[in-house]
Amino acid sequence: MDHQNTAPPSLAIIGDVAVDLVLGPVDGWPAIGTETIMRRSELRAGGSGGNTALAMRHLGAPCRLLSQVGADTFGGWLAGEFSGVDAQLGVAQAATTVSTGVIHTCGERTFFTTKGHLEEQSWAQIRPLVGAAPAPGSIALLTGAFLLPKMREAYGQVIGDLADLGYQIAIDTGWPPEGWTPAIRAATLGWLSRCDHILLNEIEVTGLAEADDLDTALRRLTPLLRPEAVLVAKTGAKGAVAHYGGARFAAAAPQVEVFDTIGAGDSFNAGYLAARLSGLGIQDALAGGCRAASAIINHFPRRAIAPGQLADLVAPAHAGRN
């Protein structure tokens, strides 16, 4: 009997995990030497890769998380935060990266982030954890490129290896701390030209394209990509837009009052990719991503969201393929 592989397509997340301490709100900025009492706080797993994996858990969608933690107490705690996720986390010989996010009453955020273990993570350490894609249509999501300098050096090989293993490639680069220099722009466009799902936010798209507005930026970038690639721009509270095959798609985000928007884009990524893996088209996937992001950031603390609690957010009223 011919036993064919009946496993469904799945998501592998390869990127950054870190410890997030979220505090706030604060009005203005305290003077040096003073003490400010915050009304709310949460210590939780973070990083773009970590946020996306946890969002997939909230949505009841399976995924694999391939990353590292630091060789300290925080590293052990961080690894334990991914129960219910198929997390394969190596240990880097460095302190765990910690990011403190201070939420301002105006809605803006200030981050203080240590270098830590993210600077030690390399493709040579992650590659042995990555197997062949379990089914056609499986997706590998790359996150945190500009926070992982050793991984970033090998990104061309990373993308090539994952394609050889049968994965579609999704990427969320984040914003480069040094800005969109000519060298950074050239390297990033080289990566994106080989990917299938490009998941950037609005200011990343306009910055990369050297454009003043989003529509101009999308028109400039689309011809540089693979014909079958989907270019998504996350537009915050407005929702998201995408270009694919010469067509433009858009979805509005549900309006919610939130204290903490950290990880909204990562939550969108989870909703969008979970929808695509289930066979839904671009329009439905954009809508699913917007619903997932709005629902997840509407919860504080995030750790209170039960696995699968938000599973009904990805499926649309009618499933369609684009």
Rank of each mutant, 00 (worst) to 15 (best):
Q157F: 01
T100M: 06
P136T: 03
G179V: 11
R127A: 15
P176A: 06
G156P: 01
G90K: 10
A92H: 05
A163D: 02
I126L: 11
F111L: 14
I139N: 01
G90S: 08
F111M: 11
T181F: 13
G137T: 10
Q93N: 14
A140L: 03
G131H: 01
E119D: 00
T188N: 00
K150F: 02
G174T: 07
C106G: 09
T96R: 04
H104F: 15
Q125E: 15
V91Q: 02
A92L: 13
Q121N: 10
E119W: 13
G107H: 10
A183V: 14
R152Q: 03
D164L: 06
I159N: 07
A183P: 00
L162E: 04
L192S: 10
A95I: 06
T110D: 09
L129F: 12
A170C: 10
K115V: 12
D161K: 11
A94N: 04
Q125V: 06
I171N: 03
D86W: 11
G156K: 00
G166L: 02
A187E: 14
F112D: 01
W175P: 00
P182A: 13
I159M: 09
L141G: 07
A124F: 04
E119K: 02
R127M: 02
P134W: 15
G116I: 14
G101Y: 06
K115G: 10
